[in-house]
Design a protein around this nucleic acid. Structure first.
Lengths: 144, 144
DNA sequence: TATAAGTATCTTGTATACAAGCTATTTCAA
DNA sequence: TTGAAATAGCTTGTATACAAGATACTTATA
């Protein structure tokens, strides 16, 4: 019987669970979750765009994106507006408050990255990231 | 701005998401999810035990364990019975059907592990597992 | 151009996870 | 021994995620 602790899938699940839990506490004072940070990050970097574009960049399906935008809109960090060129599309853009959060939130994430680097060592951390990228590219998510 | 693809937390999230999605399809024909497999695995290995013991082994809180046992009981793979020595406790045990699934399910998981090893290479896979264990032990989950 | 195909969003249902709080029960301590 | 603290399990509420399907709109094709 192969122990659970030897199965990559369960190690991945628990490592994600632990690290995500810590990341959540590091972002707690800003009122956003790691996933919500990721969506804001895409808007900071690439500007207003449709939910479909956000979903493609974050690899989330439409149901997840709908809920994520709903919650960020409720927090007053993003807002939806109709796309004048395609009435199916609603464009998602940062609000003033969403834009203002960029600097402090990125500082918090940078500090958390540094914390993880300190735990693993810079070289090991880089190696881990490379291995994870290998896994991700080996199993591209289905295009739904 | 640190790219999301450079952040360990987001790489972990996506690697887990991808690998879990594939693992789910590998177990689909058995009617169980990877998380449900993990609970069954603990019962195969350690025998009947309380929900609290299962939660400690799987690092899941009581709400998650309650739902997980509910679903496995509904599938007819485990059953709850009162602990005669402590009336707070309900012992969780495999049913006949749950026990019968051990061999085929473990074969499927072994095949999936082999699949991941083939993608990464055995040495890289072992290294990845070691790095993930390092992360897990660096951030022990709170004892709730 | 009329229709088929494709796309964007949303909805519903299921499965994890965590936080917080409740009840019943047990254990510990003054 | 009795009142406080701890424990087991459950419930509720929130946040992801995916599957499947509905609707509205756009694009491509016959």
């Amino acid at each position: 019987m192969i122990a659970l602790e030897e199965c990559l899938i369960f190690l991945l699940a628990k490592a994600y669970q632990h690290v995500n839990s810590v990341a959540r506490t590091r972002l707690e004072s800003f009122g956003v979750t790691p996933t919500q940070y990721a969506l804001l990050h895409v808007l900071w970097e690439h500007g207003p765009q449709s939910g479909a574009a956000l979903g493609a960049r974050l690899r989330l399906d439409s149901a997840s994106i709908t809920g994520l935008i709903d919650r960020l809109a409720h927090l007053g960090l993003v807002e939806r507006s109709p796309d004048p060129t395609d009435r199916r599309v609603s464009l998602v853009a940062l609000t003033i408050r969403g834009a203002e959060l960029q600097a402090p939130l990125q500082e918090a994430i940078a500090a958390f990255n540094a914390e993880l680097d300190a735990i693993l060592g810079a070289a090991e951390s880089a190696r881990l990231r490379a291995l994870l990228r290998g896994l991700i590219s080996a199993y591209p998510l289905p295009t739904r």
